[in-house]
Structures are given as structure tokens and as C-alpha cells.
Amino acid sequence: MPLLSVRSVSKNFTGVAALSDVSLDVEEGEIVGVIGPNGSGKTTLLNLITGIFPPSGGDILFQGGSLIGRKPHEIAQLGIGRTFQQIRLFEDMSILENVLVGMDFYLSIGYSATVLGLSRVREEEARGRNDALVVLGRVRSRFNETPGRAAAELPYADKRRLEIARALAIRPKLLLLDEPAAGMAPQEMRDLVADLRQLNADGTAVILVEHKMRLIEGVTNRVIVLDYGQKIAEGPFNTVKKDARVVEAYLGRGYVGAGAAAS
């Protein structure tokens, strides 16, 4: 049974068919890429999976159970983490606090216990902080050295990394990454590739929405290509990039046969 099964999913917004009949299976431990021109529905697909809005048709199964109708926080608790196209960090909070929020689900500090100031609150909080530091360690960065620094002060690439770390804190079986390499320089991207490969080795499945084909090429097992909300190709990247329809989607008609997709 695949970990995630997106079955013939469609999404309509007034007058616009953002997604039409898209299907995708993700097995445990796979890294699947989702590529396509701007506006092809990639982020919409992620939003459907994480429950931000319901699909207009089709079904989405995670570990055999349907996600339709579930609230976003429930879906996250089931083991799906995500990052966002526009960085959505808690800017006013520190690096450590961002991750602590990410793993809040695993903290068992009760409200009344907090109000009463019970000692176990302090112990649980300390344990949480240690766990958070461990999570930070999984992402290639110097976060562990300055966990108290405000997230807003971080350089751009580090912010993206922190977002990934925060998403990892929920101990996801599936991680949805929305353009994590946007704005990154080549060296930073190499670090990202290494991080993702390590993640994958740990058993986390990943759906990677990206425009940077180097990243897709270096990390994914296979990709699907979306264009105007429809899936037009699926397979290993090197095969897909030569597909005529994919080239046409990126470059327009007249470039078929050129043999390389946009990069």
C-alpha cells in the first residue's frame, strides 16, 4: 500500500480548474518531484494534501485512510509536514522556539499543570528543548550554536532550512517541500541536496515541488509534471525531461525535439 495515494483529484475555484484528475502514489521512503510551469497547480496540490481546502473531486489516502474532511492540524498530526512557498516562519520567535512549536504536539504539558506551576512542567519543557536541539541538528546549519537568535535575523537560506527543521519536528512520515531551494546559491543547494538525501535515508518520504531542475535531478526517484492542472508526464527525471509534452509546456510549441527541458 502506498504511503500517500492521491486519486483523480480535482480542484475548481470559481471558474478556474486549478487541478484536473491528478493522481499520484508515493511509497514510503520515496522522493517524488512535482514540476511544471508557474500556475500549473503544484502548490494547490500540496494545499489539498494538507487539508487547507477540500478537493472538488477525487480522494486522498494517507496510510490507507482518507484525508478528505480532516482539518490541517489533524493531517499534520498523522505525519505529514510541510514548508511553504513564501517562507512562513515565526519571525518574532527564536530558532529554538520555532522548532518547539513544530514539535508542540509531542509535548505533554497540560494547561492546568502550567497554571499551577507543577515541577513536571519544567522537566517536560527541558526535555522538549533537548529534543528540539536534536531536530535542529538534522539540518545542515549552525543553528545549534545560537538557538536563541531571532528567526527574522537569519539569512535567507537559513530561514528555508529552519522551516524544514520545524516541519521535521512533527516526526513526519511524509514531508511536503514547496520550492525549498528558491533563492539559494549553488553551494547552499548542494547542502540542501545532502540534507534531503540524509532525510530520505532516515525513511522520510518527500514530495518536492521545485523549479530548480538540478535539485530535482540530484535527489528525486521520479517526478510528475503538471501543466494547467493536469498531469502530463510521470517517471524518472531524465526520461521525463525529454518528453515532448513537457518541453512544450515549458518552452511552448516549436521547441519539441530540442531535447532539454527548461532549467
Binding site: P72, H73, Q77, G81, F84, I170
Partner: peptide, 14 residues
């Protein structure tokens, strides 16, 4: 505080 900052991201964190 997280909710104050960004509700969507907070929900996505479970």
C-alpha cells in the same frame, strides 16, 4: 505567539 504570527503555519505544525 505562533498563532499570532501565522495561523496557517501553526496549523501545519499540528
Amino acid at each position: 505567539a505562533a498563532m499570532r504570527n501565522d495561523e496557517v503555519a501553526t496549523e501545519a505544525a499540528g
